[in-house]
């Protein structure tokens, strides 16, 4: 069962389109939410969508056909790591990006709370000072 699942989700079956396509798709969905939605919480969710799209793109940049995670805990991996493991640099960068993303989301949510406290609504079209 798990073997079948693994072959189904492996990049050889799904192909690069699914990774690149879904990262661009997530980015566009997030941009749409930020530009169209009027609820402030939904706008923050849109920011997170953009972030996930960028992170997914960076991770799929580091993938190399048929290779495994860069954790060298087996003898053959220790001997020839480059032959068996994918590029670890994008993964390290995305680890940083995720943490910064959490910080950004928390800050944005705190601003949303203050706005709700001040105006009593989350609808940006009702907060007159912000109208465009």
């Amino acid at each position: 069962m798990s073997e079948a699942l693994r072959t189904f989700f492996s990049p050889q079956i799904l192909g690069p389109e699914i990774f690149y396509g879904s990262s661009v798709g997530l980015f566009l969905i997030g941009l749409y939410m930020i530009l169209v939605k009027k609820n402030l919480v939904k706008i923050v969710i849109g920011l997170s969508f953009i972030e996930s799209g960028v992170n997914l793109f960076l991770i799929s940049l580091g993938y190399v056909w048929g290779k495994t995670a860069p954790i060298l805990n087996k003898p053959e991996l220790m001997k020839e790591p480059v032959k068996y493991a994918v590029d670890p640099v994008p993964q390290a960068l995305v680890l940083t990006a995720i943490v910064i993303g959490v910080a950004v989301t928390a800050m944005a949510l705190s601003i949303v709370i203050v706005l709700h406290d001040k105006y009593g609504t989350l609808d940006i079209s009702k907060i007159k000072e912000l109208k465009w």
Binding site: P16, F19, S23, G62, W65, A85, P88, V89
Partner: peptide, 19 residues
């Protein structure tokens, strides 16, 4: 995005770190 090849070795620094 399309111009970036998927699943190819890209960085030299990654190889250095792995080795």
């Amino acid at each position: 995005v399309v111009s970036v090849p998927f699943g190819a070795e890209k960085t030299i620094v990654g190889r250095y770190y792995l080795n």
